[in-house]
């Protein structure tokens, strides 16, 4: 019974990530894009999938990955997330430099691009805090609040960014993935009381 539950959780997670990627791979828009532009789009989807994994790993919700081990994987996925965001922006830059320059300078006409730019700087900030955790020597509570705040901004802005875009992602699978990303983030924040000065850790 326990094994069945574990298999079910992993299967559900696999589907939550695989279905939107498969749906995007079937997008008719791909016919009119070259490989660099297509790769940039999929890097964005991989980044969104990473945003779903991160809170699940921190909360130790995934079978076989309790919190302690989950956090090691959380760090690795954090690296994947940053790399995916860099590839996303770099691929779009190669495809149309002036459009990406407009986004980075917050003067783009598209309403979703500012959200994407803010999410990018927030995720870079969260990753930088993680990389410099030892060196910075800030109090663990302050570190956790800072990392949590930047992660929350990343999640919120990434979801708005993705939902406003008309691109290769299929709309229903995109909305479901976004809802799961927000749900996972809210659940771990509530369970671990991530906003508290002294969090009560789950047993």
């Amino acid at each position: 019974m326990r094994l069945a539950r574990q298999i079910l959780i992993w299967a559900a997670l696999g589907a939550a990530i695989a279905v939107p990627i498969a749906a995007a791979a079937a997008s008719p828009l791909l016919a009119w894009r070259d490989p660099v532009y297509i790769a940039a789009g999929f890097a964005g989807i991989v980044a969104m999938a990473s945003l779903l994994l991160q809170p699940l790993l921190v909360g130790g919700y995934l079978p076989g990955l309790p919190a302690a081990r989950g956090r090691r994987v959380h760090r690795a996925i954090g690296g994947v997330l940053v790399a995916a965001v860099v590839l996303h922006v770099a691929g779009l830059w190669v495809t149309s430099p002036p459009d990406v320059v407009d986004v980075l300078l917050f003067r783009s006409p598209t309403p979703f691009s500012a959200w994407g730019a803010i999410a990018m700087w927030a995720v870079f900030g969260a990753a930088l805090l993680a990389a410099l955790r030892r060196k910075l020597r800030i109090r663990p509570q302050a570190w956790r609040l800072g990392h949590t705040a930047l992660a929350a901004v990343t999640v919120l802005c990434s979801v708005v960014h993705a939902l406003l875009i008309e691109g290769t992602m299929e709309t229903v699978s995109k909305a479901v993935l976004c809802a799961l990303v927000v749900g996972a983030a809210v659940k771990v924040a509530v369970d671990l009381k991530l906003w508290a000065i002294r969090p009560r850790r789950r047993a």
């Binding site: 149309s96 002036p98 459009d99 407009d102 003067r107 783009s108 006409p109 598209t110």
Partner: peptide
Amino acid sequence: SMRGGANN
């Protein structure tokens, strides 16, 4: 002129 109008 619109924002981004002159792109490309």
